[in-house]
Amino acid sequence: MASPSKNILLSAAILGIFGVLGATLVSLTWTATAERIALNQQQAFLRNVYKLIKHEEIDNELLKDVITIHSPALSKGKIQVYRARKQGEPVAVVFSPVQSPGYAGPIHLMIAVRADGSLAGVRVLSHLETPGLGDKIDDSRTDWILDFEGKSLDDPPIEKWKVKKDGGVFDQFTGATITPRNIVATVRKTLEYFGKEKERLFKQPAAPPAEPPFH
């Protein structure tokens, strides 16, 4: 029999070979799929956007006309702002993702604001809310989130930007108040941010991020 040290070396070599083989398999698969995955992510993102703003309303390349903002008061983490234009004129901006605190974890929102300051709509991109309670914010579960469409800081008046339980106009859910309350607050803050920074949001030179859009 071989000496112990030789045995150890042999075992290590076998393990090493399988490490290399495994890494090769993974990198080959990655090469074969990377382009498709990036494309999927872009398309999934655009599908979401076109639910809020019709495709015909936009003629610029949304995925390239992007700036990144940081606003700790509005959202943890950075937000990408996609500028939708038609013949160079501002149509809307899409904030994505805006992070709102949820009941069970962060909720990522896509918030589209038209150039006149009204909401083109809001969608939930990801959440960790309780199934059957907080997950009613998801447009595949209920239509609650569609209520934001067309609303602005004047309609309803700013002091009514609350859930009904707090004296506002937005519905809450039986058994889940925190989730809708936080989303209403985040959407209101986004509108306020847009009101203050509108000029800059449309004018700042585009700087598309390297990573694919969050969706």
Partner: peptide, 13 residues
């Protein structure tokens, strides 16, 4: 682990 990663990437694609 290698196969799982490959399957995950394929599924994502």
């Amino acid at each position: 682990a290698s196969f799982v990663t490959a399957v995950e990437l394929a599924m994502n694609a």
